[in-house]
Design a protein around this nucleic acid. Structure first.
Length: 605
RNA sequence: GCGCCUGUGGCUCAACGGAUAGAGCAGCGGCCUUCUAAGCCGCGGGUUGCAGGUUCGAUUCCUGCCAGGCGCGCCA
């Protein structure tokens, strides 16, 4: 059986062609637009094709709609009813069997439902997080991680090849700054812990311990890194001096931070296909080669002792320095080499997930892409807006300066990865979000939608488990006659929605919008939960009271039909949860009943 | 000053250029002899920031204002 949508589109296209043959239209279309209809009385699908073509045809839209309607040939009996409505819509109501057959396709596909046709190109490389290894990930990075990871999952399900990558900025000024900070802290620890002895005597005095630089890293993890340094080097740190000597310290510290970041991301359910190190990029000579190439094309010049890239030639507002006066290459120069390398490795569609504060950086990278001879459209920066934390209604103060910025690990400790990912993905990436800790912390599905959607999956599993364990019923293999017993409106609606999954996945992938999956999942969960509660007097499985009274009169066909539908729902829930990187629990852990009344807490004291 | 993003019920946000702009929270009122009430049903609530334009049709596209956020380094 063909895709429902595609089949309807083909019928409509044939009708449009007949209009052409009959001289009503000058030319046909590649594709006829159809969309699911919002209001039930309008049927299942509607096409606006008559509205679009009315002008060209020099006909009133409704007239043209009628002409198209009259030329639809539905030999296989898919369509139940056609009507022209409103300004010129052709509304289409499908025969019930279309949905029943559709359910068969879903069951047949199982966990593969929604997989798109494999697409050979373009090959995507999604770069995300890429936080400097100078400190732990904060909440903003968490959102980027959730978005980048989900986008990769969605693209892959839609049929594309998509790899994920973390670019490690483990070279440059900030990493040196980290090394410096760690070294200073290490000296302070030595001084504070054994002030009575000055181990190097005249060669070194505690008075020589330098002050922490103004823009140094002050937070607590620097102290941990300093301890690690002391464990490795002991008092040899006393012999080090700012400058080249601190290279190994910076390297050690950034390496340790990178490992910590990797650990955080793993906890968060995010693993990368590739980690690319800026340091190794520098050491490999890739930057020189990249600059040479641009130089050969006349796109690099010298001015005031520095070397500049002519990004203004490609729409940037000014040229940018790639080699500083002091001879060091800039971060931008490394990024040129890095993006060139991405193309060289065979990727032809680059998605970079950046914090919104990097938007000013976009034109110069676009310029690089163009200078390298690639389409500017092959580079897509995805700017992720900031996350504001709230507790109840109150904003939680964040800021690196105050030192109390919230890390991904902190937040995971408090609310768990599932809630974080859900709320990071719930909104479009370009909208600011308020993350309410109070909501995220709740285990109550009526309060916390992240729990609610997982509960939908758990509930479907619960029914199937109960059927198996208590009644010995397995999910029956698909049988068209059997599923015709599904006649409740919610049952038909659920099948319709499940049939939309492939379209949804593809649209979500093309639009780079994971939040559409969240909306869909949330809506389908609501439908299922509502169905579940509303059919309590007429449940899928015979209730205990019925079992005692005897099961001779029980409608087993109906039960089996519903088990088929529930199994399909379970799969669709699991697929969507997986696309978002959320766990799909088979049962919900029982909630701890916490007494939130403060007066009773006092009584316990 | 220039550039990017965002303005939609009390709050947080949806809506390939489509029909009467939808959800969730919060508020109010109901529903358990039951596969998890860890749930469901109903009600009220809107000049889609403002003004123009394009279109058969604009929350969506264009222009100008207003408001908020963020950028505008030989930092990364």
């Amino acid at each position: 059986m063909k895709h429902v949508r595609k089949h309807i589109q083909e019928l409509l296209l044939a009708a449009v062609d007949r209009c052409v043959a009959d001289g009503l239209l000058a030319e046909s279309l590649d594709q006829v637009p159809i969309e699911p209809v919002k209001r039930a009385e309008h049927g299942d699908f509607a096409t606006t094709v008559a509205l679009m073509l009315a002008k060209k045809a020099k006909m009133p839209p409704r007239k043209l709609a009628e002409a198209i309607r009259d030329r639809i040939q539905d030999d296989e009996g898919w369509i139940d009813h056609l009507e022209v409505a409103g300004p010129g819509f052709v509304n289409i109501r499908l025969a019930r069997d279309v949905w029943y057959r559709g359910l068969g396709r879903i069951r047949e596909a199982g966990r593969d439902w929604g997989l798109g046709e494999p697409k050979a190109s373009p090959k995507f490389l999604i770069e995300f997080v890429s936080a400097n290894p100078t400190g732990p990930l904060h909440v903003g990075h968490g959102r980027g991680a959730a978005v980048g990871d989900a986008l990769g999952r969605i693209l892959r399900r839609a049929g594309w090849q998509a790899s994920s990558e973390y670019y490690l900025n483990d070279a440059g000024r900030q990493v040196r700054q980290l090394g410096q900070s760690v070294w200073v802290r290490a000296l302070e620890i030595l001084r504070d812990e054994r002030p009575e002895q000055d181990p190097k005597g005249q060669k070194f005095s505690w008075l020589d311990v330098p002050a922490m630089p103004e823009d140094g890293y002050q937070a607590d993890y620097v102290r941990d890194l300093a301890r690690a340094l002391l464990n490795e080097q002991g008092i040899a740190v006393l012999d080090m001096a700012p400058g080249e000597d601190l290279g190994p310290v910076a390297e050690m510290a950034s390496h340790k931070m990178a490992e910590a970041i990797r650990g955080t991301l793993e906890r968060f359910g995010v693993t990368f296909d590739f980690w690319v190190s800026e340091r190794s990029l520098r050491r490999s000579g890739a930057i020189d080669r990249a600059l040479d190439k641009l130089q050969a094309d006349g796109l690099i010049y010298e001015k005031e002792g520095a070397r500049w890239f002519r990004s203004s030639r490609f729409g940037d507002e000014k040229d940018r320095v790639v080699v500083r006066k002091d001879g060091e290459v800039t971060y931008f120069a490394a990024d040129i080499a890095y993006h060139m390398d991405k193309y060289d490795r065979g990727f032809d569609q680059l998605i970079d997930v950046w914090g919104a504060d990097h938007h000013g950086y976009v034109p110069r990278v676009k310029a690089v892409v163009e200078a390298l001879g690639h389409s500017p459209d092959s580079f897509e920066p995805l700017l992720v807006q900031f996350v504001a934390l709230k507790r109840g209604g109150e904003k939680v103060a964040m800021g690196k300066r105050s030192g109390n910025f919230v890390t991904v690990d902190d937040l995971m400790d408090e609310v768990g990865m599932a809630a974080m990912r859900y709320f990071f993905l719930e909104r479009r990436h370009d909208s600011h979000i308020d993350f309410d800790l109070e909501v995220a912390l709740s285990q109550d599905p009526t309060v916390n939608p992240a729990v609610y959607v997982q509960y939908g999956h758990a509930r479907a599993c619960g029914i199937l488990r109960k059927a198996r364990e208590e009644l010995g019923l397995e999910v029956p293999s698909f049988d068209l006659d059997l599923v015709r017993h599904l006649d409740l409106p919610q049952e038909i609606e659920a099948i319709k929605q499940m049939l939309e999954l492939p379209t949804l996945v593809e649209e979500s992938a093309i639009a780079r919008q994971p939040h559409r999956i969240v909306s869909y999942l949330s809506e389908l969960s609501r439908l299922f939960q509502s169905y579940y509660t509303q059919t309590k007097s007429d449940p899928v499985l015979p209730p205990p009271s019925q079992r005692e009274a005897g099961l001779e009169s029980w409608d087993w066909d109906r039960t089996n039909a519903r088990l088929t539908a529930v199994a399909a729902l379970r799969d669709v829930f699991a697929i969507c949860l997986d696309l978002l990187g959320l766990p799909a629990p088979e049962r919900m852990a029982s909630i701890e009943t916490v007494d939130l009344d403060p007066s009773s807490a006092e009584q316990e004291e």
